[in-house]
Design a protein around this nucleic acid. Structure first.
Lengths: 83, 83
DNA sequence: TCAATTAGTCAAAAAAAGATGACCACTAAA
DNA sequence: TTTAGTGGTCATCTTTTTTTGACTAATTGA
């Protein structure tokens, strides 16, 4: 579910609140548009993240944890504590 | 820790008891010697599996869960139940 | 003696994943 | 009007992962 080079880190960041495309690009050192876009799309397809377009003055896009994503949190943290 | 195409399946099989090289090769459809050998070696290097040579008539090799591997079991099962 | 099973290794090819750079369309500020 | 920021896509190249097939060496059964 969280396989790939960037998905675990992206998932981890969503625990602290919604994330945005360009924000991730800056936070994830060594990442690139394509990889981040692919990771976000796959996480959305799997129903782990939800993509929300914020229709305001400078319109932007937010990705936040879905219910399914939230169900993953405890086991993710447990996993994190083991490695 | 369990990244790669075959490691999760191999790990799963060790929960029911020790596994063996050729046995895995037969159980894991679509697998091959090289990949199974690599997965076993890496799981051993990480201290998740232990390699034991059974010094008997037809000598063979067994891989079984280490203590570290056992610590991984509950979180693995939890993860399994989510996917 | 021949075939099969045990547990692998090695080099090479193929497939999958990731990175790079160009491009797009929109908005806002200087 | 140029520059920067928003959020991407596309084709191509590189890197990593996985597969393929040949080979080894010891043991067992027919």
């Amino acid at each position: 579910m969280l396989s790939g080079k960037w998905k675990p880190q992206i998932f981890r960041l969503t625990l602290d609140g919604a994330v945005r495309f360009n924000g991730l690009l800056r936070q994830l050192e060594g990442s690139n548009k394509q990889s981040v876009a692919t990771a976000l799309r796959e996480l959305e397809e799997q129903g782990i993240l939800e993509r929300v377009v914020i229709e305001q003055k400078p319109l932007h896009v937010e990705y936040h944890l879905s219910e399914k994503g939230k169900a993953l949190v405890p086991v993710f943290l447990q996993l994190e504590s083991l490695s």
